[in-house]
Design a protein around this nucleic acid. Structure first.
Lengths: 245, 245
DNA sequence: CAGTGGTCTAGACCACGCG
DNA sequence: GCGTGGTCTAGACCACTGT
């Protein structure tokens, strides 16, 4: 009766039971030993089945507590380019962004990203934004220190539209270049975003340059893939030709 | 001597041995039983270790043949917006894009994506692009049939810049809206892209509209996350304000 | 066919969360 | 302390790939 392997069949059954409301969102599933004996399989086989549902985002395992049906997730939008504030984001509430500021010296990747000589003084902003306890973004932003706004000082809390727009610079950039990639989180990112390794993250590297092609900001953004999409809107203005590096 | 758990320590050791060139790219690792006895662990523990390296993209398992060190991957760029042809892409060679054309009727998601009434005749383009046997994109593109170019007929092969640009329409759109998300592949996608489930994919939904806000193309693109990045370049033209839906 | 990875078992012991 | 998931073992058998 199983599809191809035992654990897949069990996963299919559990998935049906979850999606048909037999187990509601937030509810705890029976313990793995109970489920294993119910399906007449060993615990490892049952754990393989649960691993599938976990990767699908249907189930969340919490060590010492149990397996829980995940709440249906509302997707949040990261708006690319100049991030024109959309009503959706504006209406968003219950957001908290914690920012930590530090002075660092350009090293390694940072020098090439910012096109600055090594040891150039930079200001680093480390941001984690939460929405109701669940983190939904992790950002490290680097700005040449002479361009950093003095407004944002030490650790502080922000709210509102800053969640997806982290432009913290004085001169408006003329070009924004965003590189988006999908990958699995590093252990650090997984714990910071409170996601399990094995769930994909959306990584955005944003580099903003001013009119004189000076890099005024480099941002490394990481979002949990199951909660955040990135949106880019491009208009065809007459025959404007964006230059490629 | 292990970091936190046995299999992590083994993964660390193998990772070091791979990155230091002890095992070269494309080379086969010792069999799992051999490695298990070498590290004095059970096979399942060793398989857990290999699973870590697999998720990192360092190792590829092939059933019946062995575990192989993956070749370092050159990243390919998906260029957002109007995809200004960059020298990098132009110089790219050895590409093959297979296209399959079909006539379908708008249903479900398609009707809302294309903003057309149900059962509107659509032309579906299914594209798989390869680079030296390795697929690197999977695309399903939907165009209202009255807009589809008659140039592309039945199954055909293309090459060149079509790889990341699938614009197959007559009227030039005035707005392109691209939604990017990171997730794990569906079983279908995993087999089509020849990637293992558990490796992230970059999914791009691209909707192009003409001046009259008519949707002229909806594209569902899927890329293996370890091979493809998406790039979006935005310019600040005076005070152009892209509208958000 | 021999050798490989894939699945599964029936346990054992450890680490975590909570009362 | 108790129940939970996390890790691990020492096997067995199945499925795939090559010769």
């Amino acid at each position: 009766m199983s599809a191809t392997s035992r654990h897949r069949g069990i996963a299919d059954d559990l998935r049906k039971r979850i999606t048909t409301g037999c187990f509601g969102p937030g509810e705890r599933l029976p313990s793995e030993t109970d489920l294993a004996s119910h399906y007449r399989v060993s615990t490892s086989t049952l754990r393989n089945a649960l691993a599938l549902l976990q990767r699908e985002g249907l189930v969340e395992k919490i060590h010492g507590r149990g397996n829980f049906v995940r709440h249906p997730l509302r997707k949040i939008m990261y708006v690319g380019g100049w991030g024109t504030l959309d009503p959706w984001t504006a209406a968003e509430t219950a957001l908290r962004v914690t920012v930590r500021t530090a002075a660092v010296a350009a090293r390694g990747h940072l020098t090439s990203m910012l096109s600055v000589p090594p040891d150039t003084p930079l200001t680093e902003f480390t941001c984690v934004s939460h929405e109701r306890d669940a983190p939904h973004s992790l950002a490290r932003i680097y700005v040449p220190s002479d361009l950093a706004l003095p407004g944002l000082r030490q650790d502080s809390d922000l709210a509102g539209r800053t969640l997806t727009r982290f432009a913290v610079l004085a001169p408006t950039p003329s070009e924004i270049r965003e590189t988006v990639s999908a990958r699995l989180p590093t252990p650090d990112e997984a714990s910071a975003l409170q996601i399990h390794p094995g769930t994909a993250v959306l990584a955005v590297t944003r580099i903003a340059t001013d009119n004189a092609t000076r890099v005024v900001e480099a941002a490394l953004l990481v979002f949990p893939g199951d909660r955040v999409d990135a949106v880019f809107t491009t208009h065809h203005v007459t025959d404007e030709r964006p230059t490629q590096r």
